[in-house]
Design a protein around this nucleic acid. Structure first.
Lengths: 336, 336
DNA sequence: CCGGTCTATCGAAGCGCTTCGACGGTGTAT
DNA sequence: ATACACCGTCGAAGCGCTTCGATAGACCGG
């Protein structure tokens, strides 16, 4: 069963090859009758344009790269959500997605770009000092970053506004009358690496807390149950008046609740807890957690939209920050 | 900066285009001196073959599709591990990976296959009655499934031997002297959908337990803390002699430990717990859990290896079952 | 009824690569 | 020396598509 080519369609429809091409691409006006005839042939023969030939002739592969480094401390489910929303959105723009990891390093990016395998790139989990960033500036291919490197000039970046997310948590707790609050963040390693979002959340939290006249402290948090327990215990002992806790660490969220249970602090009666995490984690906890959810799907969607604009030569903003939204559930309550 | 083509390399090295091609592909013998000269030119010019042109001429895109449906109850981190090991392995074979979700359904597969965008397919999370399966049989392109559909004839499937994993847990508990054991599985929805691995684990567990003369029961388990708590409570009340628990549900693992803590059952002194889950989840728990880990990386690796063999026309086994391994940690102990 | 303007379609020239057959040149058996 | 095989290299023919310029009508105003 030889595969069907555009020539087969043309013959079947009794038109020229170029006419079929124009019907399919819409780049020139074709009469309705011809167009219909061609489309009927396309369906009758089950024609699918050959991707390689198309790419060669048009200099567009209709594929974008999704570069997804996998590092300690990053949360896989969120990464997965990003990835799927990128794929789904790309498909809406008639593009496919090539999945790349960081194993190959910058050379991998150079390879796929130079070989014209992809038309553009979406990079996830961008670090403050990311090796891939300087390369992006050299590349012909447009790119969009999810996250912000130290120097974002000339780049297109998208992310949740984590500073605002941190601030939102502080404000929510303040509005409930809490006066001493704390944020438990990512593991140490994440900060050492300089992954911007973790730091920005802390800063936003602490600054907003102080601006509201609260005692607000932030500290990293490892992900083992025993470590979480110890951290929470020390925290509570050092700050007896502490009544509001923000957790920005998905692996630790469950453990924090377990720790509070073990330490005999009831949630929310004695300690109000806010999580910054995906919705399902928050809902699945006991009690269901008031949370700021990470809109992974939105971020992925925006990233692709921006990339598509760049591919069409349209101007796009350098920075896109998504507004966080706080959902109140049963883990926060006014301070007694 | 026009992109470098094979003609540029040929001119720079003073040879014919075809010679450059043969040097790069190794499909014909080329003298060492010519070969070196060509390679020097390749490096000097920074040549990268155009993927589209290559695909068009050779009828091979050097891209494989990774089809990753996203469904309720499936565990994202494991999926992510699969994905990355697929990408890494594919790169070792000089292939790239196109990421697809299930949104497009079988049509998406048909599209990428018919357009010669990909040379082969790896499908994850295959269901007992998977719509995509009949299509695969029609396709010219070879494919490998991760998981087993009801009718696997003529297909190549890879998976962890979940029945064996369930059995292994039962045997481990039996060897420690436990006489009444239970398995907490995936949420109901997973069984309703007919996702084979969940059922196979249960069967393996129950059969091995019975063969060893134990009381072994298995039941689904939802993922919310309160639900887990209720399930565990009911279970313990209904089976006062129960001293061994297997958990095959990553989202619930943490909650099960929390539930036992709340119910005042100490682990491992009163209840031994075995988890079937990724290593990091087991290690992060308190106490660290004896576990059978899901060798996602291995499975992905095998899947790609098999696919590459098929691409080269080599015969491959229909079914590849990976042997599970149980790691003893601190959550299991001999029955008092 | 002629030049001018559109519109719908065609034909052909590539895009950059692989691959097939051809062809000198060198080595080996006769 | 002659025939033959073989090795290393070349040239050219596509692969299936897009796109540019050309063309043949249809339609218009003058």
């Amino acid at each position: 069963m030889r595969t069907v080519t555009i020539a087969d369609v043309a013959k079947h429809a009794g038109v020229a090859v170029s006419t079929v091409s124009y019907v399919l691409s819409g780049k020139r006006a074709i009469s309705a009758t011809t167009s219909q005839r061609v489309m009927r042939s396309v369906r009758a023969l089950g024609y699918h344009p050959n991707a390689g030939a198309r790419a060669l002739a048009s200099k567009r592969s209709n594929v974008i790269a999704l570069v997804l480094p996998l590092r300690a401390g990053m949360h896989l489910p969120v990464a997965m959500q990003f990835a799927t929303s990128v794929v789904t959105t790309a498909r809406q723009f008639d593009h496919d997605v090539l999945l790349m990891t960081a194993d190959e390093g910058p050379d991998g990016l150079r390879r796929v770009a130079a070989s014209a395998l992809v038309d553009g790139l979406v990079l996830m989990d961008v670090e403050i000092n990311d090796l891939r960033v300087p390369l992006l500036r050299e590349l012909e291919e447009p790119s969009v970053l999810i996250g912000f490197p130290a120097d974002a000039s000339g780049l297109t970046c998208v992310d949740l506004d984590f500073a605002r997310a941190g601030a939102l948590c502080a404000e929510h707790l303040a509005s409930l009358g809490h006066r001493e609050i704390a944020l438990l963040g990512a593991p140490h390693v994440v900060y050492q690496r300089g992954t911007g979002y973790a730091e920005r959340t802390m800063e936003g939290f602490v600054e907003a807390g102080q601006a509201l006249g609260l005692s607000a402290i932030a500290l990293p948090c490892e992900e083992g149950f025993d470590e979480v327990c110890a951290t929470v215990k020390t925290l509570l002992e050092g700050h007896p008046g502490l009544s509001g806790l923000v957790v920005h660490n998905e692996a630790a969220v469950g453990h924090v609740l377990g720790a509070l249970r073990v330490l005999g602090r009831r949630v929310p009666e004695e300690v109000s807890v806010v999580a910054i995490c995906p919705g399902d984690v928050a809902e699945r906890a006991s009690p269901p957690l008031t949370s700021v959810l990470i809109p992974a799907a939105d971020v992925g969607h925006q990233a692709v939209r921006l990339l598509m604009s760049k591919l069409e030569g349209a101007p796009v903003p350098d920075a896109t920050l998504l507004e966080p939204r706080l959902t109140v559930r049963q883990s926060t309550t006014p301070r007694l």
